[in-house]
Amino acid sequence: MARKPGLDEGNLPEAAFFILLAVRNTRHGYSIMQHLEERSGGLVTIGPASLYTTLKKLADAELIEEVDSSNNRRSYRMTAKGMEVATKNVERRRQLVAAAEKLLNEEIGEDNG
């Protein structure tokens, strides 16, 4: 059985997740890249090719929408559906971190089988 793309299931890849969060407020492409790098302390950097490919995928999934802009730049913002998916992704990531911490903290030799 073929696996569905993550956007169709609402399970976002890391880059898509951060781009979606960045357009909670309306932003244009370069501003999205700057915002993510600055707000993450350099942990999240996305190049132009990845950014614009991901923006198209997010728009196709109706998680973001292009908004009219008077400065000849394409600007985007999160939709209500995008907010729902972002919220679910934050919770999913919290659960994944909790599971990872549990695994990391297990007694060594507990399940050596």
Rank of each mutant, 00 (worst) to 15 (best):
R39N: 10
R39M: 12
R39Q: 14
R39A: 11
G41M: 09
G42N: 07
L43H: 11
L43Q: 11
V44N: 00
T45S: 08
T45R: 14
I46G: 04
A49H: 10
A49P: 00
S50M: 07
S50K: 10
S50F: 02
Y52W: 12
Y52H: 07
Y52K: 05
T54K: 06
T54W: 04
K56H: 09
K56S: 14
A59M: 09
A61P: 01
A61W: 01
E62C: 04
L63W: 02
L63R: 01
E66Y: 01
E66G: 09
S69Q: 08
S70H: 11
N71M: 08
N72C: 05
N72G: 02
N72L: 10
N72F: 11
N72Y: 13
N72W: 11
R73S: 13
R73H: 15
R73P: 00
Y76V: 07
Y76K: 09
R77E: 12
M78K: 08
A80T: 13
A80R: 13
K81W: 01
G82C: 01
E84R: 14
E84Q: 11
E84K: 14
E84A: 09
E84L: 06
V85R: 01
V85W: 05
A86V: 05
T87Q: 12
K88W: 00
K88S: 08
N89Y: 05
V90K: 11
V90C: 09
V90G: 04
E91I: 14
E91K: 15
E91Y: 08
E91G: 03
R94D: 10
R94S: 10
R94C: 12
Q95H: 11
Q95G: 02
Q95Y: 05
L96C: 04
L96Q: 15
L96A: 15
L96R: 15
V97E: 11
V97H: 04
A98S: 11
A98P: 02
A98T: 04
A99I: 06
A99K: 15
A99T: 11
L103F: 13
L104F: 12
N105E: 10
N105Y: 06
N105V: 02
E106A: 06
E106F: 04
E106M: 14
E106V: 07
E107G: 02
I108Q: 08
G109Y: 03
